[in-house]
């Protein structure tokens, strides 16, 4: 139940932060309630739906046969796309991808790609063709912090993915080689800065009040992606503090992902 106007919301959020409080009573570095379901879409090679607070994102994986990129002929392909569905929010319209939805899919893709968690070289097929993994994300409900929710859904869908058998450059859709091999798990943690206070997992109202955000993607040992969004600024010390927090808070998300492959 949020305040209906941005300006009112902003002033209320700031009013509370001055007292070291958040609207929903959370600690500054606490995630909202998280839930995860996976494997529910029978037509996909992998699928998952993640919910953080009221934000809900569904992810699906499909394989196709393709040509490797000329710049990288020894590897298969990963393509990540996203759609902010109009049913998720009054602020989402029908139409081509917006700058926000493109940024969303590219930031999520970045961590997975640079974390090198998918062995793309194993996607090469005998005749020079390769497997392409399409990872598609759809926002179903927008309650703040889309990137972390999207990343969680994407990672869960990958963990849930089964690699199909390929015969004569044709994918056998009902036969599988086994689970998709993954070298590590990548998650993102997004922090908002509101009047010099740093908080994790901003809700919709907190997003409206924020000056800027920092999303940090981590694998077990590395920061694998980072994106500052919004027009405010960060100090160097703040960035370093948040990198530490990203590794710490990663564990809160891992516990939902660790059992997918039992």
């Amino acid at each position: 139940m949020e305040d209906v106007h941005k300006k009112i919301r902003k002033s209320y959020v700031e009013f509370l932060l001055e007292k070291n409080e958040r609207m929903d009573g959370r600690d500054f570095f606490e995630f909202r309630e998280i839930s995860l379901e996976y494997g529910m879409i029978g037509t996909a090679e992998g699928s998952a739906i993640a919910k953080i607070g009221k934000t809900t994102v569904i992810a699906g994986v499909k394989f196709e046969i393709s040509e490797p990129f000329p710049s990288d002929p020894e590897k298969g392909i990963l393509i990540t796309n996203a759609e902010f569905l109009p049913l998720a929010s009054e602020s989402f319209d029908l139409g081509p991808p917006t700058e926000k939805s493109i940024e969303f899919s590219r930031v999520i893709d970045r961590g997975i790609r640079h974390g090198e968690i998918i062995p793309l070289e194993k996607f090469l097929l005998d005749d020079g063709k390769a497997l392409a993994l399409f990872l598609d994300l759809y926002v179903l409900d927008y309650g703040g912090n889309l990137i972390d929710t999207g990343s969680l859904a994407a990672m869960a869908a990958l963990l849930n993915t089964k690699l199909p058998k390929v015969e004569d450059s044709v994918i056998l859709r009902d036969e599988y080689q086994g689970p998709l091999e993954l070298r590590d798990i990548v998650v993102t943690t997004t922090f908002a800065k509101i009047k010099d206070r740093l908080i994790l997992d901003p809700s919709l109202e907190e997003e409206d009040a924020a000056d800027c955000f920092l999303t940090i993607g981590t694998s077990s040992n590395y920061m694998v992606s980072a994106q500052k969004t919004g027009s405010g600024t960060f100090k160097k010390e703040e960035v370093l503090e948040l990198v530490d927090k990203a590794f710490e808070k990663r564990k809160d998300l891992l516990k939902y992902l660790n059992n997918i492959r039992d």
Partner: peptide, 8 residues
């Protein structure tokens, strides 16, 4: 006066 406005 400035308060909170919620919707039901």
């Amino acid at each position: 006066p400035m308060g909170r406005v919620v919707d039901v």
